[in-house]
Amino acid sequence: MIQIEQIDFRFTWPIRHEVMYPEHNLDFVKLKNDAEGIHFALYFNHKLIGIVSIFNEGAVYQFRKLAVLQEAQGLGLGKKLMEHVIEYCQIQKASKLWCNARANVKEFYFRLGFKETEKTFFKDGYDFIIMELDL
């Protein structure tokens, strides 16, 4: 059973930490504008498995910190969570959804319809590519 719901930003931190930056302390995964974002959680069999945060400037939305626990990766749950985000943004009349994708997972975003831009950067030990989806 899969359930996706909006959550308080503080509930995203443990999964962000465990999945994305376990070598750092918990404060490392906190975003300065977390309180301004919209945060979704995916529950699988009543257990919090994945999270994502979205922020907007007008009709342009950015999602950040998509994370699914290692034990549940490969089950299509990240895809379900992203489909929910895309639908949410469409309902909000967003014109574009974008992200800073880790280069090693860009194929995941291609399968969701995102396109790679020419903008790349290196941060916190990872190569990133800015990817966009026109809505």
Rank of each mutant, 00 (worst) to 15 (best):
Y109P: 00
D8P: 11
G78I: 01
F122N: 13
G76V: 06
E57Q: 12
G37N: 03
R16G: 00
P22Q: 06
K80G: 10
A101S: 14
F9A: 01
L112Y: 00
F40A: 00
G50Y: 00
P22A: 01
H39D: 05
G58N: 09
E23P: 11
I4F: 00
F121I: 02
F114D: 01
K96P: 05
N56T: 12
V52K: 00
G37E: 07
D27A: 13
Q70C: 11
L48M: 09
G125L: 03
V68H: 01
I15Y: 07
T12G: 11
P14Q: 00
F122W: 14
F114R: 06
P14L: 02
D27R: 14
T117E: 02
E5T: 10
N33M: 14
E132W: 05
E23V: 02
I38Y: 11
N33W: 07
L97H: 12
E57M: 14
I4N: 01
E5D: 08
M1S: 14
N104Y: 14
Y21G: 10
L81R: 03
K47C: 10
F110S: 09
G74C: 04
K106R: 14
D27W: 08
N56I: 06
Y61P: 03
F110K: 15
G76L: 03
I130P: 01
E87K: 13
L97M: 05
I54A: 09
F40S: 04
E87R: 11
L112K: 06
F44K: 12
R10D: 08
Q70N: 08
L112M: 08
H46W: 06
R102V: 09
R102S: 08
K32C: 13
K47H: 07
L66P: 02
Q62K: 12
E87M: 10
Q3M: 14
A72L: 06
A94E: 06
E71T: 04
